[in-house]
Each structure stands twice: as structure tokens, then as C-alpha cells.
């Protein structure tokens, strides 16, 4: 059962055995939140907050994490937190960032760095919030945006989003006699963010806590916009057992369905060592009810496209240069 067993440690993650003991013990996202059992997104938020530390303002798009954390008159947040609506976390974040900057300049708040961190789900980020996100990234706010991608509108009951993977069954793209489920390939938002020429773009997953936390720390230090796309396993919507949450994330990575990489100043690199030969996607999808209906042919085309996308990423990594390297070459 445990994906670790039978695999060399290096394949899983550069996961120092006792490293969990080194992380910030403070819980900024507290127990008592109403997330489902085994929620990968709640876990990812908890880890993100640890990496960010106290001097953070969280701007939350409407979605699971807002609903489960802010049931008036209580809150699961130890950090200052604001939620306004579904599509506008990046825009509200722009305002928070601008305010922190100007109030600090005017001496109305303490003179120290407080980071604005906007968060949203895949619906609030890839679909309805894309315009606000693009605007905020393009304008260069000193803001980190983290998308917690559970690959559908889980809060409203598992409807398809543009982050829903090929073939998955959702309540608005169900499989049937005339349909295979979701027919489209997942929108590649990290790539769209990279095209905004921001200094830092990364993918992450709740199953690789240290990798994710390192990325959050790195992004936090950037004086400008940064984007992290965190695959967050949703046992409820993916129809897998809650205890399999971490395993599903690992399999998404090991099959190449969701490789973990970062693009720093334009230079791409893999952050978790990948197996020489990717595991077959069957290993990943067979555990999830949302893929149960797929025919062998459909699985095959899922596999082929996964291989192709992975190859595209490897090419990018092989040929990419940072902006500094590019300008040095020109000079």
C-alpha cells in the first residue's frame, strides 16, 4: 500500500527522514476547520502557512477553503485573512499589497516585510479568477498566488473545471453512452503564468511537503509576483479512500501526470527526482473512482498525451536558460 515501500527513497522525494521535525511547529491554520476527512488541500494550506510564517496576509477566493475555515463567529486562521468573492482573490490581493506598501512607506504600520498571499482553488484560479490573476501578475505586485488545484469545483459538488483532467468523471461532465466524461486536456496554468514573465513559477503537491514548503519560502522571498500551482488531492471528488490522499499525489508525480518543477527567472528545473521510466498512468488512475469508466483505448490516449506533455517539459528543462544567462549570451 505505502508507495514508499519497494522504492528507493530518492525516487519518492529528497525527504530527509527526520526533516518533519525541523518545520515550524506553529499551526497558523488550526484544527477545528470543517474540511473533509483526508483533505489534501487543507493539508497543503497548513504546510504553506508554516512555510510563510507570521508576517503574512492571506487573501482567499471563495471555495472549499474559505467555507471550511471561516464559519462565523469562528475562524481557523491565526494569520490575518480576507475573503471577498470567488473571482477576485488576485485583485483583492493587489489592493492588500498596495496598501501594505503605502502604509509602511507612510509609517502607519510597522516597518517590516509582510507578504500578501492570495489563494484560490482551480475554479477560482484557472476559470473565473483567471483575468484578475493575469492582471495582478502582469502588474508586478509583490504577491504570491497559490492555486490549490483539486481538479474540479469540489465545493459545489464536483463540477468540471478547466483543471479537470482528461477522462475524469464530474457531475457536469459525466460519462455516458454519448460521452467519455471530461473530453479536454487540463489547462496548463503554470505555463500561462510563466508566459507573464514573472520571476518564479512552480508546481507542487501536498504529498511532497518539504518540496512545497521550500517553494513557498523561495516565492515568499521574491520581491514581485510569484505563482505556485499545488495539486491538492481531494478524496471526496476523486473518489478514493481518505487515507490514500498522500499516495495519490505521489502517483500523480511518479506517473508524470503532474511533474514537480519550478521556473526561476525563466529557467526550468525538476525539483523532485523523477524515475528514469515513468510509472504507467494506470497505477495512478486505477485507484480513483473518477477514472473507473475509462476504456483501455481511452487510457492509452491518456498515457500517450501524458508522455508527450512530459517530454515537452523535459525539453523545456534541457533547453531553458535563465534571463541572466540569456542576456550574458547576447553580450
Amino acid at each position: 500500500m505505502n508507495t514508499l515501500k519497494g522504492h528507493p527513497v530518492g525516487l519518492i522525494e529528497n525527504f530527509d527522514l527526520y526533516a518533519p521535525k525541523l518545520v515550524d511547529r506553529e499551526e497558523y491554520f488550526t484544527p477545528g476547520h470543517r474540511a473533509c476527512q483526508g483533505c489534501g488541500e487543507a493539508l497543503a494550506i497548513r504546510l504553506m502557512c508554516k512555510a510563510l510564517g507570521k508576517d503574512t496576509v492571506i487573501i482567499n477566493a471563495t471555495g472549499c477553503m474559505q467555507v471550511i475555515s471561516s464559519l462565523y463567529p469562528t475562524t481557523a486562521w491565526e494569520l490575518p485573512w480576507i475573503h471577498v468573492a470567488f473571482p477576485n482573490a488576485a485583485a483583492v490581493g493587489s489592493g492588500v499589497e498596495a496598501a501594505l506598501k503605502v502604509l509602511r512607506r507612510k509609517g502607519r504600520i510597522p516597518n517590516r516585510d509582510v507578504k500578501a498571499v492570495a489563494i484560490g482553488g482551480d475554479g477560482g484560479t484557472l476559470d473565473i479568477g483567471l483575468q484578475a490573476l493575469s492582471g495582478a501578475m502582469e502588474r508586478g505586485h509583490n504577491m504570491l498566488y497559490v492555486c490549490f488545484d483539486n481538479e474540479a469545483y469540489m465545493n459545489t459538488g464536483i463540477q468540471r473545471s478547466s483543471a479537470t483532467p482528461f477522462g475524469a468523471s464530474t457531475t457536469t461532465a459525466p460519462p455516458g453512452v454519448a460521452s467519455m466524461g471530461n473530453k479536454t486536456w487540463k489547462k496548463n496554468l503554470p505555463e500561462i503564468m510563466a508566459a507573464h514573465n514573472i520571476s518564479y513559477v512552480a508546481t507542487a503537491c501536498n504529498s511532497y511537503p518539504l518540496d512545497f514548503m521550500n517553494k513557498v519560502k523561495k516565492a515568499r522571498e521574491i520581491d514581485g509576483p510569484a505563482y505556485i500551482h499545488c495539486l491538492s488531492v481531494c478524496p471526496t471528488g476523486w473518489r478514493c479512500p481518505s487515507e490514500a490522499c498522500i499516495k495519490m499525489g505521489r502517483l500523480a508525480v511518479e506517473t508524470g501526470v503532474f511533474p514537480l518543477y519550478e521556473a526561476e527567472q525563466g529557467r526550468y528545473r525538476m525539483t523532485v527526482s523523477m524515475p528514469e521510466n515513468l510509472r504507467p498512468i494506470q497505477d495512478y488512475i486505477k485507484h480513483q473512482g473518477r477514472f473507473r469508466h475509462l476504456t483501455p483505448e481511452q487510457v492509452q490516449s491518456f498515457q500517450e498525451r501524458t508522455n508527450l506533455e512530459y517530454k515537452k517539459l523535459l525539453n523545456k528543462i534541457e533547453h531553458s536558460k535563465s534571463w541572466a544567462e540569456m542576456s550574458a549570451n547576447q553580450g
Binding site: 499551526e27 488550526t30 484544527p31 477545528g32 476547520h33 470543517r34 475555515s69 471561516s70 464559519l71 462565523y72 463567529p73 469562528t74 475562524t75 481557523a76 486562521w77 491565526e78 494569520l79
Partner: peptide, 23 residues
């Protein structure tokens, strides 16, 4: 609470108070 006692803007200035609810 009664309407007079609702926190202005439904703000919660009691960080981490979700702990009051035992899941």
C-alpha cells in the same frame, strides 16, 4: 447573537477560534 451584537462586517478577531468546534 442578536443583531445588535453581530460583529461589524461579520469580522472575527479571535484567531484560531475554530478550535472551539471539535471535529
Amino acid at each position: 447573537e442578536d443583531w445588535q451584537d453581530v460583529n461589524i462586517g461579520c469580522i472575527v478577531s479571535n484567531p484560531g477560534s475554530a478550535r472551539e468546534y471539535h471535529t
